[in-house]
Every structure is written in structure tokens, then in C-alpha cells.
């Protein structure tokens, strides 16, 4: 109880994999022995509509089942959401971290939204297109999240994600490989660290 639970909020648009990112990230943290929660915000399910999903990660069992209002980290999968919705809502400018999928640098994003806290950027969409062949930025953003927060080890993330994707894409090893190199690249290419 005395140790704070680590909380993440993911912003995306329906179809971009915000829910999957939370599930995969939760599973990866579980594989390191941590206690986890991963849950989406359920509203009308429409392709392209703004959606959110959440993670709680802790060394102790998690009992809290209220919504996450003050996350430690916010991950934005789609930069067009910035300015449309308040992605920094509940984020503490002194301690909170904001990670955005964009070719722009952290300073430009800060200026754009008038946010004084720490901002990191990574061009996850370009990475996804070059590695997976499609603009599905969720797995590379996990790589960026792990780099910025160090909440779990990147090798654990790679290993567990590989296992999960191998199950889902049994006959398409190129998708698994693409996602793995996307995570690695985003881990290395985050700006602002």
C-alpha cells in the first residue's frame, strides 16, 4: 500500500491498437513477476473515434478498481488527438511523463499544447510502416514507454511480446519479426531522453 502503483493511460483512435497495447504491456509486466491490470475505456466502438486504455503495474497485489484519473505516464498513439482532446488531463507537470507518436521533437509538442512537463516523442508510425508494413503504432510505443520509464526490462518486453504474437500470428512470422524490430527501434529512437 505504501508503494505507489504505476499507472499508464493510452490514447488512440479506434483500430490503432490502444487496447491491445495495454493488454500486451500488462502481460509483459506480469512475466517479470509484477502484478498488473489492463483495461479499456468502453464507449461506442467506432473506427477512428478517440479511445483510451489503461494499465496499473505494481510489485504488490492491486486492489484498486476505480478509474485512473492521475496517471504517471500518458502514451499518445495518434498525434492528431493532441489539441483535440486534453491528453495531459490529470498528468502532474512535475513528475508526469507524456510520450507522443510524432515526427516532431518534444519541444514542438510542448509548445503546441502549452505543457510544461516532460515530453518524449518517437515517430512510431514511420517505424511501424517500415518494420510491420502498416501504420499500427502500438507495439513501437511500448518500446518507447519502457525506455522512458524503465518500469520493466526491454528484454522482458521483447520476449513476452514475441511469445504472445507467435500465438496470434502462427503462420505469419514476418508480422512477429516486424513488431519485435519496431519495439527495438522505437526504444532506441525516442527523443527527449
Amino acid at each position: 500500500m505504501t508503494e505507489k502503483v504505476f499507472e499508464v493511460r493510452w490514447h488512440g483512435r479506434g483500430g490503432q491498437g490502444a487496447k491491445t497495447a495495454a493488454l500486451l504491456f500488462g502481460d509483459a509486466a506480469l512475466s517479470t513477476g509484477k502484478y498488473i491490470q489492463a483495461f479499456p475505456e468502453y464507449g461506442p466502438e467506432r473506427m477512428g473515434a478517440p479511445v483510451q486504455s489503461f494499465n496499473r503495474i505494481s510489485n504488490n497485489p492491486i486492489r484498486d478498481h476505480s478509474g485512473i484519473e492521475r496517471p504517471d505516464v500518458v502514451v499518445v498513439l495518434d498525434v492528431t488527438l493532441v489539441g483535440q482532446i486534453d491528453v495531459t488531463d490529470g498528468l502532474d507537470p512535475d513528475k508526469g511523463l507524456l510520450i507522443v507518436n510524432t515526427p516532431l521533437g518534444p519541444e514542438e509538442i510542448k509548445k503546441k499544447i502549452g505543457y510544461s512537463g516532460r515530453v518524449y516523442t518517437v515517430d512510431a508510425s514511420r517505424i511501424a510502416k517500415e518494420t510491420i508494413g502498416r501504420d499500427i503504432p502500438n507495439t513501437p510505443m511500448m518500446g518507447a514507454l519502457v525506455r522512458v520509464t524503465g518500469v520493466i526490462d526491454v528484454d522482458n518486453l521483447l520476449e513476452d511480446t514475441k511469445k504472445k504474437l507467435e500465438k496470434k500470428f502462427r503462420n505469419r512470422p514476418e508480422i512477429v519479426e516486424g513488431n519485435i524490430s519496431a519495439i527495438k527501434r522505437a526504444y532506441n529512437e525516442v527523443k527527449g531522453v
Partner: peptide, 12 residues
Amino acid sequence: TDGFILSHCLET
């Protein structure tokens, strides 16, 4: 179970 809060929450 509580709808969505537990039904759709992945947890340990």
C-alpha cells in the same frame, strides 16, 4: 462480476 470493471479488466 462487476460489468466491465472486472469482466473486461485483465488482472493477475
